[in-house]
Protein backbone atom coordinates (compact mmCIF):
# COMPACT_ATOMS: atom_id res chain seq x y z
CA UNK A 1 0.00 0.00 0.00
CA UNK A 2 1.30 3.41 -0.82
CA UNK A 3 0.56 6.28 1.52
CA UNK A 4 -3.00 7.70 1.53
CA UNK A 5 -2.99 11.11 -0.11
CA UNK A 6 -5.74 13.67 0.37
CA UNK A 7 -6.80 17.01 -1.06
CA UNK A 8 -9.21 19.36 0.67
CA UNK A 9 -11.96 20.82 -1.48
CA UNK A 10 -15.15 22.89 -1.08
CA UNK A 11 -17.34 25.29 -3.02
CA UNK A 12 -16.96 29.00 -2.66
CA UNK A 13 -20.04 30.20 -0.81
CA UNK A 14 -20.80 33.37 -2.75
CA UNK A 15 -19.71 32.20 -6.19
CA UNK A 16 -20.26 28.47 -6.02
CA UNK A 17 -17.06 27.58 -7.89
CA UNK A 18 -15.01 24.56 -6.83
CA UNK A 19 -12.02 25.50 -4.68
CA UNK A 20 -9.05 23.60 -3.26
CA UNK A 21 -6.92 24.39 -0.26
CA UNK A 22 -3.55 25.61 -1.52
CA UNK A 23 -0.46 26.97 0.20
CA UNK A 24 -1.84 30.46 -0.40
CA UNK A 25 -5.40 29.98 0.82
CA UNK A 26 -8.22 28.68 -1.38
CA UNK A 27 -7.64 28.36 -5.08
CA UNK A 28 -9.97 27.44 -7.93
CA UNK A 29 -7.15 25.45 -9.54
CA UNK A 30 -6.70 21.83 -8.61
CA UNK A 31 -3.08 22.23 -9.70
CA UNK A 32 -2.53 24.54 -6.70
CA UNK A 33 -3.89 22.06 -4.16
CA UNK A 34 -1.91 21.04 -1.14
CA UNK A 35 -1.41 17.26 -1.13
CA UNK A 36 -1.75 15.86 2.37
CA UNK A 37 0.02 12.64 3.19
CA UNK A 38 -0.67 13.00 6.89
CA UNK A 39 -4.21 12.05 7.85
CA UNK A 40 -4.19 14.10 11.04
CA UNK A 41 -3.13 17.25 9.21
CA UNK A 42 -5.81 16.67 6.59
CA UNK A 43 -8.49 16.24 9.23
CA UNK A 44 -7.36 19.37 11.04
CA UNK A 45 -7.57 21.35 7.80
CA UNK A 46 -11.06 19.96 7.19
CA UNK A 47 -12.17 21.06 10.65
CA UNK A 48 -10.85 24.54 10.00
CA UNK A 49 -12.67 24.64 6.66
CA UNK A 50 -15.91 23.58 8.31
CA UNK A 51 -15.61 26.52 10.63
CA UNK A 52 -15.20 28.91 7.71
CA UNK A 53 -18.93 29.02 7.10
CA UNK A 54 -18.86 32.59 5.80
CA UNK A 55 -16.78 31.77 2.77
CA UNK A 56 -17.19 28.06 2.06
CA UNK A 57 -19.91 25.52 1.48
CA UNK A 58 -19.60 21.74 1.81
CA UNK A 59 -15.87 21.19 2.44
CA UNK A 60 -14.61 17.60 2.22
CA UNK A 61 -11.48 15.57 1.62
CA UNK A 62 -10.87 13.62 -1.57
CA UNK A 63 -8.57 10.68 -2.17
CA UNK A 64 -5.66 11.17 -4.49
CA UNK A 65 -3.20 8.67 -5.93
CA UNK A 66 0.22 9.26 -7.41
CA UNK A 67 -0.04 8.32 -11.09
CA UNK A 68 3.19 8.67 -13.02
CA UNK A 69 4.38 11.05 -10.35
CA UNK A 70 1.29 13.27 -10.54
CA UNK A 71 -1.48 13.48 -7.96
CA UNK A 72 -4.73 12.28 -9.55
CA UNK A 73 -8.08 12.01 -7.71
CA UNK A 74 -8.94 8.33 -7.53
CA UNK A 75 -12.60 8.75 -8.40
CA UNK A 76 -13.76 9.91 -11.81
CA UNK A 77 -16.36 12.09 -10.11
CA UNK A 78 -13.65 14.11 -8.43
CA UNK A 79 -11.61 14.32 -11.60
CA UNK A 80 -14.60 15.78 -13.47
CA UNK A 81 -15.24 18.13 -10.60
CA UNK A 82 -11.63 19.32 -10.71
CA UNK A 83 -11.68 19.74 -14.49
CA UNK A 84 -15.11 21.06 -15.45
CA UNK A 85 -17.84 19.46 -17.61
CA UNK A 86 -16.26 16.98 -20.03
CA UNK A 87 -18.66 18.10 -22.76
CA UNK A 88 -17.37 21.66 -22.61
CA UNK A 89 -13.55 21.52 -22.56
CA UNK A 90 -13.55 25.32 -22.72
CA UNK A 91 -15.30 25.64 -19.36
CA UNK A 92 -13.82 25.34 -15.91
CA UNK A 93 -10.18 24.90 -14.87
CA UNK A 94 -9.56 22.34 -17.63
CA UNK A 95 -9.55 25.22 -20.11
CA UNK A 96 -6.06 26.16 -18.83
CA UNK A 97 -4.60 22.87 -20.01
CA UNK A 98 -1.24 21.80 -18.66
CA UNK A 99 0.33 18.56 -17.64
CA UNK A 100 -1.84 17.96 -14.59
CA UNK A 101 -5.10 18.69 -16.43
CA UNK A 102 -3.92 16.27 -19.07
CA UNK A 103 -3.15 13.63 -16.44
CA UNK A 104 -6.64 13.97 -14.97
CA UNK A 105 -8.24 13.75 -18.40
CA UNK A 106 -6.25 10.62 -19.22
CA UNK A 107 -7.01 8.77 -15.99
CA UNK A 108 -9.62 6.03 -16.32
CA UNK A 109 -11.95 4.39 -13.83
CA UNK A 110 -10.71 4.17 -10.27
CA UNK A 111 -7.24 5.64 -10.64
CA UNK A 112 -4.65 3.61 -8.77
CA UNK A 113 -1.29 4.65 -7.50
CA UNK A 114 1.63 3.78 -9.75
CA UNK A 115 4.42 4.99 -7.55
CA UNK A 116 5.53 7.96 -5.57
CA UNK A 117 4.62 11.53 -6.03
CA UNK A 118 7.13 13.61 -7.94
CA UNK A 119 7.89 17.20 -7.28
CA UNK A 120 4.49 18.18 -5.99
CA UNK A 121 4.29 20.11 -2.75
CA UNK A 122 2.79 18.22 0.10
CA UNK A 123 2.06 18.49 3.77
Amino acid sequence: MSEALKVLTANDLAGGQVVFLSEAGWSDRYADAVIFDDAAAADAALEAARAATLTLADPYLIDVAAVDGLPVPTSYRERIRALGPTIHPDMGPQADGGVLVHALQQARGAARSSGRLGLIRRK
Binding site: N11, G15, G16, Q17, V18, A57, I80, R81, P85, G92
Partner: peptide
Protein backbone atom coordinates in the same frame (compact mmCIF):
# COMPACT_ATOMS: atom_id res chain seq x y z
CA UNK B 1 -28.06 31.54 8.67
CA UNK B 2 -26.03 28.35 8.61
CA UNK B 3 -25.77 26.31 5.43
CA UNK B 4 -28.14 23.76 6.96
CA UNK B 5 -30.73 26.43 7.66
CA UNK B 6 -30.24 28.12 4.32
CA UNK B 7 -30.28 25.08 2.05
CA UNK B 8 -34.05 24.39 2.16
CA UNK B 9 -34.70 28.11 1.62
CA UNK B 10 -32.47 28.37 -1.42
CA UNK B 11 -33.92 25.15 -2.79
CA UNK B 12 -37.41 26.56 -2.54
CA UNK B 13 -36.13 29.28 -4.84
CA UNK B 14 -34.64 26.84 -7.30
CA UNK B 15 -30.99 27.28 -6.35
CA UNK B 16 -28.92 24.07 -6.12
CA UNK B 17 -25.27 23.63 -5.36
CA UNK B 18 -24.06 21.42 -8.18
CA UNK B 19 -20.80 19.73 -9.04
CA UNK B 20 -19.08 22.85 -10.36
CA UNK B 21 -21.24 25.73 -9.21
CA UNK B 22 -24.72 26.87 -8.26
Amino acid sequence: LTEDQFKPLRLMNGLYLQLHSY
